[in-house]
Computed example of a mutant assay.
Amino acid sequence: MRTMNEAATDIDPTHALVLGDLEDSTRDELECVNAALRAALQHGTTVEIALDAEQFAEDYPARVADVDTEFERVDEGIYRGSLPQCTDALEGLLTVGTWHRFVALESVAVRRDGEVFLWYVPDHRTFELDANLAAEALDDVREVFEGRPAALVSTDAAAQWNDGDHYYSLEPPSLCVDDRCFGLSRLAGVDVDPQNRRLSLSWQSDSSGVVSRFVTRITPSPPTTLSIPDDETFERVAGTLEQLTADRRSTED
């Protein structure tokens, strides 16, 4: 049996999706990601999905029936369809606003002539694209993100450093400290101190309501200061985070 993660090893991503401040997390995430997928699908020849069809069909039998018609089942839970013929059946899965969309639909891999250029895992918010295989897809996805709280960040921005106390890793869409990672979707602002190679970070609060405030208190907070030991790493990290927040501000103007 082939697992959903095997397709991920086929992609060497050049860009990763970072979502911004979402007014309605489920609705806005669906709107951004679905728009990006529609744009990218135009440049693919096949699409492969990992789907728990039984789980999805409990509430959406007709949509799963469309998948059975338009896709070929190539392994247990793995379906492959030709583009653009299977687009409507895939759209039926993507436009579901319930938990099925994020759990029962486990992954989407878009291929061009057999090569994966887009890899999406809804439950993990993983959205990766290889522009070396589909530069036009990158341009089109960036275009649909204009005016939306989303950005594609180059994976060349990845950097690692140690400040003497902690190990840091910038791996868009996350910033990791030791073994704890924080989504860059919450990054609100960056103040740059090049003389001391120091970055001051401000983060959006995700606490609304008693439960969320309690969870926020008992979970680690993202770093508010980054001290970076060398100029090259500092410039890479500062440039990436500044560009990311600038892209966010442009969507609010």
Results as ranks from 00 to 15, higher is better:
W119F: 13
L133F: 00
G92K: 03
I218L: 12
E23H: 15
R186W: 14
A53N: 04
S107D: 02
N132A: 13
T224P: 00
L51R: 05
D59L: 15
F56S: 03
T216A: 14
V215P: 00
G81L: 09
L41D: 03
V210K: 04
I218C: 04
L241Q: 09
R198W: 02
T45A: 09
D75C: 00
R80Q: 14
I218E: 09
A62Q: 11
T26R: 15
G81V: 07
V144W: 07
L226A: 06
E31S: 14
V67W: 01
P149D: 09
D66Y: 01
A57D: 01
Q160D: 14
L22G: 07
I228L: 13
T69Y: 07
E29R: 15
P173Y: 05
R73W: 00
D113M: 05
T251L: 06
T251G: 09
P84C: 02
A158E: 14
D191V: 09
D12H: 10
D130P: 05
G81W: 06
L83D: 07
D253V: 12
G114D: 04
W99Q: 14
R248G: 14
D130C: 04
N34C: 08
G183V: 07
V18G: 06
F71C: 02
Q42R: 15
D247R: 15
D140L: 08
D113A: 11
A157E: 09
A150T: 04
P229V: 04
N132G: 14
V67K: 02
D21N: 10
R27C: 09
R217V: 03
W99M: 12
T98H: 13
A40M: 12
R63K: 13
D28E: 12
V190D: 04
Q204K: 11
V237R: 02
R63G: 03
D12G: 05
A39C: 08
L129V: 08
P172E: 07
D247G: 08
L105N: 01
E48G: 00
D66M: 11
T3Y: 13
V33Q: 11
V47S: 06
V103Q: 11
P13E: 02
T95E: 14
D66K: 15
V141P: 01
D163S: 02
R186P: 01
I218R: 12
C32F: 09
G183L: 09
T240R: 03
S82G: 13
R249K: 14
A137L: 08
V103I: 10
A57F: 03
R186T: 14
A109W: 01
T155K: 12
N196Y: 08
D12R: 13
A16V: 04
S227G: 11
N162A: 12
P149L: 08
R27V: 13
Y120F: 14
V33A: 10
V108K: 02
I228T: 06
P149N: 08
G97K: 10
D52T: 05
E146G: 07
L19C: 09
A36N: 08
